[in-house]
């Protein structure tokens, strides 16, 4: 394994050295690989492919999606961190790969802050606090009252132990001062189904996983975790509006490069991403998957990664889901 990556790095380093001779203003001069650290077809992959398609047009070079799934996005993200910093290997970074993964998994082979050059956010997906139809509470306050009247009896679901939805649920419990049982499912689909059938009472679900059921009326949304209300669910209050202070969390996706890429490449890519995400067609497609288009500067993005890493590391430690 080490031998192989050494080989790859040697080859990549040779390419990088060779390219450094050329001028960065000509970037890009050949196809770019975009590593999506999840298997084809997932929500990260869909967003990655939408962005890759837009970037290809914008940069005049094809951007090829390379799916490297595994270990909550950390396998593919390791490959991004180890790639040559020449701007020809980029990755889709996310809450999973840059905050929750490093917070919950033992032995993640990269530093989410130091090993990457953040380029720009691409989109943000709200967490939605959804309850089963068997739960009578119509508001967050009623839900909290219910949970407090039966300490330890309510179940909150998640898409897996140590997953984003698990930590988001735990954060809600902590912010509201509740004692609840965590029930892990294998993925968003089974977790959503368990909520519909009432096997669990609540779920801090990601928007794409629960949106169709909320619209279909088979589960109810009580609040969204974002700062502002979501355009997809304009009638649902934010956590702050619902009276839960200090709960602010969302799932984000962004474009990252390995640390050490030339500044000119970062600037060029940041411009390109902004242009792609601002395209109404692209925005519409992102929104359809439950992802709100978002852009920011490399510095803002870096700060966000740092903050989220700290936030999720703390909650993971508090509930004992931390890696060693």
């Amino acid at each position: 394994m080490t031998n192989r990556s050494n080989w790859a790095m040697l080859a990549a380093a040779a390419v990088a050295g060779w390219l450094a001779a050329g001028s960065a203003s000509a970037y890009p001069t050949k196809p770019i690989t975009l590593i999506v650290p999840f298997p084809p077809g997932g929500s990260t992959d869909i967003v990655g492919r939408i962005i890759a398609e837009g970037l290809s047009k914008e940069l005049g070079q094809s951007v090829v999606v390379d799916n490297r799934g595994g270990a909550g996005g950390t396998v593919g993200t390791t490959a991004v961190a180890k790639a040559a910093p020449d701007g020809y290997t980029l990755g889709i970074g996310s809450t999973s790969s840059h905050a929750v993964g490093p917070a919950t998994l033992p032995k993640v082979a990269y530093n989410a802050v130091k090993d990457f050059a953040p380029i720009s956010l691409v989109g943000e997906t709200p967490y939605v606090l959804a309850v089963s139809p068997k739960v009578t509470a119509k508001t967050v306050a009623e839900l909290i009252a219910l949970a407090k009247s039966k300490p330890g009896q309510l179940n909150y679901g998640s898409a897996g132990a140590g997953s984003t939805t698990h930590l988001a649920g735990a954060m809600f419990a902590a912010a509201a001062g509740l004692k609840m049982e965590h029930i892990a499912y294998k993925g968003n689909g089974p977790a959503t189904k368990a909520l519909m059938s009432g096997e669990v009472e609540l779920l801090m679900g990601s928007m794409p996983a629960v949106l169709s059921q909320i619209k279909g009326g088979t589960i109810r949304a009580l609040a969204v975790g974002t700062v502002k209300r979501s355009p997809a669910l304009p009638d649902v209050p934010t956590m702050r509006e619902a009276g839960v202070a200090g709960y602010e969390a969302s799932l984000w996706l962004g474009l990252v490069a390995p640390a050490g890429v030339p500044q000119a490449v970062v600037t060029r890519l940041n411009q390109a991403v902004h242009k792609v995400v601002s395209d109404p067609e692209v925005a519409k497609r992102l929104q359809a998957t439950g992802t709100e288009p978002r852009i920011n500067t490399p510095a803002e993005f870096a700060k966000q990664v740092q903050d989220d890493l700290a936030k999720y590391t703390k909650i993971a430690k508090d509930i004992g889901a931390g890696g060693s």
Binding site: M1, G69, G70, A71, G72, T74, V75, T78, T104, L105, P106, K107, A109, G160, A161, G162, S163, H166, A184, Y185, K186, A321
Partner: peptide, 19 residues
């Protein structure tokens, strides 16, 4: 990774085996 706890079993430290 064990679904209920997230504990990695028989992975020998290889990320490829986590799933």
């Amino acid at each position: 990774q064990d679904v209920s706890t997230g504990f990695p079993r028989f992975t020998f430290g290889l990320g490829e085996l986590y799933e």
